[in-house]
Amino acid sequence: MTIVIAIAAGALGLAAACTLARLIRGPSMLDRAVALDVMVAITMGGLGVQAIATGEPWTLPSLLALSLVGFVGSVSIARFLVHRDGEDA
């Protein structure tokens, strides 16, 4: 089981590095917003792997709070970009 956890942690680390590169290089604000949303999802995956590895159930409320923050952040960025472009929603 520890090999699976190590592979999952490595894959999440690689995904985080690629997402960080897109977050820094992203040519538009929308690319950066999507990269930030993906980074929140990767962080949630990392917390899930950590919860499985340690057997601690106390990580799960953190996952719930992080998912709510990610959702509200995505919606607010989308609303901001729509109003910035001059379209009415």
Rank of each mutant, 00 (worst) to 15 (best):
T2M: 14
T2S: 09
I3T: 11
V4L: 15
A6Y: 12
I7H: 07
I7Q: 12
G10L: 15
A11D: 04
A11K: 03
A15T: 13
A15H: 06
A16L: 13
A17K: 03
A17I: 15
C18T: 09
C18A: 13
C18N: 07
T19A: 15
T19H: 01
A21T: 14
R22S: 05
R22D: 01
R22G: 00
R25H: 10
G26V: 04
S28G: 08
D31C: 02
D31N: 11
R32V: 02
A33Y: 02
V34Q: 04
V34S: 02
V34M: 12
V34G: 01
A35I: 04
A35V: 06
A35L: 06
L36K: 00
D37Y: 03
V38R: 13
V38C: 06
M39F: 15
I42N: 11
T43N: 03
M44A: 11
G45Y: 08
G46I: 05
G46Q: 05
G46K: 01
L47R: 01
L47M: 15
L47H: 01
G48H: 02
Q50K: 06
I52H: 02
A53Y: 06
A53L: 09
T54S: 15
G55N: 08
G55V: 05
G55P: 01
E56N: 15
E56T: 05
T59S: 09
L60F: 13
L60N: 00
P61T: 06
P61I: 06
S62Y: 04
L63M: 15
L63I: 15
L64W: 09
A65W: 07
A65P: 00
S67E: 07
S67G: 12
L68G: 14
L68C: 12
L68S: 13
V69K: 00
G70V: 03
F71A: 10
F71V: 08
G73V: 05
G73F: 05
S74W: 11
V75Q: 02
V75T: 10
V75M: 05
I77N: 03
I77M: 13
A78P: 00
A78H: 06
A78V: 08
R79N: 02
F80Q: 09
L81C: 07
V82T: 08
V82C: 06
H83I: 05
H83W: 09
D85W: 04
G86E: 12
E87M: 09
E87N: 03
A89Q: 08
A89Y: 14
